[in-house]
């Protein structure tokens, strides 16, 4: 049914009319160890529109995670401007950054990063609690999200009582629960086998295509990158390729 598919895309177009989701201008990042400066990003310029599915690739140490942390407002660039959803990130206070991470961004990590002592439903509900939603309502919405990723039967289980692939699906549910504008996933399939990776990537594809969710993933594996529409390749802190996945030599 094309109408079911078109609805989110008309919304995406509406959002893009107001400006891109991400605009990075000359982003530089150096780590400092005492007086020793280690430059990692040397001026990254990338613009990402709403509804895009982008893969970031590059050798180990090329600065992918560094870039992701900046995009996720977990870290600040040494120089450059970052506009996320129309807001200048460098001008935001600590509290506003926390709010942006809560409302605008959903994180998916390589190591899942679920809280060990909490049942899955509470793990997924946690971002809602930080958003000020009541416990009962948060649990209800969390259970719904878990059901959508096929984990409706595991609400009361602890993270160590389910498989890695399932844990990553919980993490994705948690990333989605606050209805963010953007999913940031740093090597989401890094700890998973091929079959499970495929499941996870299919989930991302569905989110992107059916709901128009903007997704950024970092990966080493060309097979995983192929699920994305656009590829950004980093080398030693420089962008060496930025274009459709299909045109890239993976």
């Amino acid at each position: 049914m094309p109408s079911a598919n078109r609805a989110p895309f008309s919304k995406v177009a509406e959002k893009n009319a107001r400006g891109p989701l991400i605009a990075l201008t000359d982003i530089r990042k150096s780590y400092f160890n005492g007086d020793l400066e280690t430059p990692v990003l040397h001026g990254v310029n990338v613009t990402i529109k709403h509804g895009e599915f982008v893969a970031i690739m590059g050798q180990s140490g090329s600065g992918k995670s560094t870039l992701m942390n900046i995009l996720g407002c977990l870290d600040t660039p040494t120089k450059g401007s970052y506009i996320l959803n129309g807001r200048e990130v460098e001008k935001l206070s600590d509290n506003e950054l926390a709010q942006v991470r809560n409302e605008t961004i959903g994180f998916v990590f390589q190591g899942f990063n679920l809280l060990k002592r909490m049942p899955l439903v509470d793990n997924v509900a946690l971002p809602l609690l930080y958003a000020g939603v009541s416990m009962a309502e948060a649990r209800k919405r969390a259970a719904l999200k878990l059901a959508q990723t096929g984990l409706g039967d595991f609400l009361k289980r602890l993270p160590n009582q389910i498989s890695g692939g399932q844990q990553q699906r919980v993490a994705i549910s948690r990333a989605l629960v606050c209805e963010p504008a953007l999913i940031l996933a740093d090597e989401p399939t890094g700890n998973l086998d091929t079959t499970t990776s495929v499941e996870i990537m299919n989930l991302f594809t569905r989110l992107n295509e059916e709901q128009g969710m903007s997704i950024l993933i970092v990966t080493h594996e060309p097979d995983v990158a192929k699920y994305a529409k656009r590829l950004v390749r980093l080398k030693d802190g420089y962008v060496t390729y930025d274009g459709p996945v299909a045109d890239a030599h993976l």
Binding site: A98, R101, N102, L115, L126, P127, Y130, A131
Partner: peptide, 10 residues
């Protein structure tokens, strides 16, 4: 993790 999910310092 909590901070990434939106926990404020407070």
């Amino acid at each position: 993790i909590r901070m990434a999910l939106g926990a404020k310092r407070r």
